[in-house]
C-alpha cells in the first residue's frame, strides 16, 4: 500500500519533470498535432490529394494552394496532410515490430546466457553491421514496396538495436535478488522471464523507442525517396520529395515543404526521446 503510493507519486513527479522541460512539451504537442492531422486529414485538407490539374502545374504558394502545386497540379498542402498518416504508421509500426521481436530475442539471449544467447547476439551483430538503409533497401527490393512491407523492412533493421538494449538490461536484472527469490519459489521460466524480468528491463526501451521512431520516419522517407517505399499515387512525404526534386530549380516548394514536415516530425520524436531519457534517467551510448 505504502509502496503503491510512493510509485504513483514518483510517476507523477516524473510527468511533471517531463512537462517542465520545454523541448518535451513542444515535441509532445507536435506529435499530437500530427496525429490529429492524419486522423482528420479528409476533413482538414482543402483539396483532394490526388486531384490532377495539369493547367495548374507547378504553381507557387498562393491563397488557394498554401504550399503551391506539384508537376501534376496537385495541391502540395493537401498532399502533406494526407501523407502524414503514412509517416506515422510506418514510424510507429516499424518501431512496434522491432520492439516486439527485438525484446523477445534480447530477453531470451539475456536470460539463457549460454549458447542460445551467443548465437542470438552474434546474429544481432550481423544484422547490426548493415547500414540500416542498405538492409532495408535490400529487404524492400525482395519483398516489394508498400506500407506493410516497408514496416517489415525497416523493422528488421531496428531489431538488433532493441535486442541489445534489452539484452544488457536483462543481464543486470536477472542478477537481482528479487528475481532469484521468485525463482526459488519454483515459478515457471517463461512466466519468470515475461512477467518479472521483462517489465523491469523496459525503461531504457521506452526511451530507445522514441529515438528509433524518429529514425523510422527518416528511413521511410528515404525509401520512398529512392522509389521503393509507399506506392504512388498515395501521398507520402518521401514520394513528394522525390517528385519535386527534379523541379528544384523552378519550383522548390514542391520538395521543400514535405521535407520540412519530415524534419518537424523527426525533431518532435527526438525531443520526446531526449526528454524521456532525462526524466527516466537512462544512460545509453548511441
Amino acid at each position: 500500500m505504502d509502496n503503491d503510493k510512493k510509485t504513483s507519486a514518483d510517476s507523477n513527479r516524473s510527468l511533471k519533470r517531463f512537462l517542465r522541460n520545454k523541448f518535451n512539451l513542444i515535441g509532445g504537442i507536435i506529435i499530437l498535432l500530427f496525429l490529429l492531422i492524419s486522423i482528420f486529414a479528409p476533413v482538414i485538407s482543402p483539396h483532394p490529394p490526388n486531384q490532377v490539374n495539369l493547367k495548374m502545374s507547378l504553381q507557387p504558394p498562393s491563397k488557394t494552394n498554401f504550399f503551391g502545386t506539384d508537376s501534376l497540379g496537385r495541391d502540395v498542402f493537401s498532399r502533406i496532410i494526407h501523407g502524414c498518416s503514412a509517416s506515422l504508421i510506418v514510424g510507429l509500426g516499424s518501431v512496434g515490430f522491432s520492439l516486439v521481436v527485438g525484446s523477445f530475442l534480447g530477453v531470451i539471449a539475456g536470460y539463457f546466457k549460454g549458447s542460445i544467447g551467443i548465437v542470438i547476439m552474434r546474429f544481432m551483430d550481423a544484422l547490426w553491421s548493415f547500414p540500416s538503409i542498405i538492409l532495408a533497401l535490400g529487404i524492400a527490393a525482395s519483398i516489394g514496396p508498400g506500407i506493410k512491407n516497408i514496416i517489415i523492412a525497416i523493422g528488421i533493421t531496428f531489431i538488433p538495436g532493441f535486442a541489445r538494449v534489452i539484452y544488457s538490461q536483462v543481464l543486470i536484472v536477472r542478477e537481482e535478488v528479487y528475481i532469484k527469490a521468485i525463482k526459488s519459489l519454483g515459478t515457471k521460466t517463461s512466466r519468470l522471464i515475461f512477467w518479472h524480468v521483462l517489465p523491469n528491463s523496459i525503461t531504457p526501451v521506452i526511451v530507445y523507442s522514441s529515438l528509433m521512431a524518429a529514425q523510422a520516419v527518416i528511413a521511410e522517407a528515404g525509401l520512398s525517396f529512392l522509389g521503393i517505399g509507399v506506392i504512388p499515387p498515395r501521398a507520402a512525404w518521401g514520394n513528394m520529395l522525390r517528385d519535386g526534386y527534379i523541379y528544384l530549380g523552378v519550383a522548390p516548394w514542391v520538395s521543400l515543404f514535405p521535407g520540412a514536415a519530415i524534419f518537424l516530425l523527426v525533431l518532435a520524436f527526438n525531443f520526446v526521446g531526449d526528454g524521456l531519457r532525462d526524466v527516466l534517467d537512462v544512460r545509453m551510448t548511441q
Binding site: V266, L267, N270
Partner: peptide, 21 residues
C-alpha cells in the same frame, strides 16, 4: 538537436537550392 533531426535528403536539397542554384 536540429542537426540530429535533419533528414539528409532534405538537407541536400536545401544545400543545392542555396549554394548551387
Amino acid at each position: 538537436s536540429l542537426g540530429m533531426s535533419l533528414p539528409n535528403f532534405w538537407l541536400g536539397l536545401l544545400l543545392i537550392l542555396f549554394f548551387s542554384l
